[in-house]
């Protein structure tokens, strides 16, 4: 786990273009960003702002067309599929908006899956702690279809935490949940940072969700346009509104990163 204060990941001059020539769409335009270790960072922005693309590039799921991405000290742009797969497996955890779990595996098997794939035994004491923290003790033997949406997302968070990755990326983790379950999941992400020292990066367009973070980065038209430390929901909403007005017409560009 990265020590607090050190960047857990960073991007330098990160560009991502879709298509080529005349029809090229620039999703990320020379983005420089540092993700601090041991903190909860939210990335916000309207549809088509490039926030998902940024996350995918930082997580080694997508290939940038320019610039450099580091996870810890590892530069990703030169890594092949095999090395990227290993990086995701060993150093990154994911929580997606939906379809986070394999339907054929039990909750527990889903949680230990990344470690099992790597051929590592998940530390039992740590697993117990994660499961207790997420309040999943009595759900471990259940299959995903026997769990509620909130429970499923908690299992996904547990899976991300279980392997003790350097970074956890959460892509709209509460997008499919009612507000109570959503708040619960966000609370757990918050606790994983506070109590377990985890680094979390979350993409969201929900100001409420963003208010759980330590830092909010605002993205528009492929650039970071603003940052907000110690956000509240109202403050985030106010900033968003401001730059909806400012960004005006450009926000309606075709959205290459389908949210």
């Amino acid at each position: 786990m990265a020590a607090s204060g050190q960047p857990a990941a960073r991007a330098v001059g990160l560009c991502k273009a879709y298509g080529s020539g005349e029809t090229a769409v620039l999703a990320l335009d020379r983005v420089d960003v540092e993700i601090d270790g041991g903190r909860f960072t939210a990335i916000m922005g309207p549809s088509g702002s490039g926030k998902s693309t940024l996350m995918h590039c930082l997580a080694g799921l997508d290939k940038p067309t320019g610039g450099e991405v580091y996870v810890g000290d590892t530069e990703l742009s030169h890594l092949g599929d095999r090395a990227l797969t290993r990086l995701r497996r060993d150093r990154i955890g994911f929580v997606f908006q939906a379809f986070n779990l394999l339907p054929t595996l039990t909750a527990e098997e889903n949680i230990t899956l990344p470690g099992d794939i790597a051929g590592r035994r998940t530390d039992a004491a740590w697993l117990r702690q994660v499961v207790e923290t997420l309040n999943l003790g009595d759900r471990l033997r259940h299959r995903p279809h026997e769990l509620s949406g909130g429970q499923q997302q908690r299992v996904a968070v547990a899976r991300a935490l279980a392997a003790r990755p350097q970074l956890i990326f959460a892509d709209e983790p509460t997008g499919n949940l009612d507000s109570r379950s959503g708040a619960e999941v966000l609370g757990f992400l918050r606790r994983s940072v506070d109590e377990l020292g985890q680094t979390v990066v979350m993409v969201t367009h929900d100001p409420n969700a963003a208010s759980f973070a330590d830092l909010v980065l605002f993205l528009a038209d492929g650039r970071i346009v603003d940052r907000l430390e110690g956000p509240t929901a109202d403050a985030v909403l106010e900033r968003m509104r401001r730059f909806d007005v400012r960004g005006g017409s450009q926000v309606t560009l075709p959205a290459p990163d389908a949210d």
């Binding site: 599929d81 095999r82 290993r86 995701r88 497996r89 794939i117």
Partner: peptide, 16 residues
Amino acid sequence: TREIGLLRAIGLGRAQ
């Protein structure tokens, strides 16, 4: 397909 995407995202190699 989605399941396979998820597996790949969380670190399942192509050979696996």
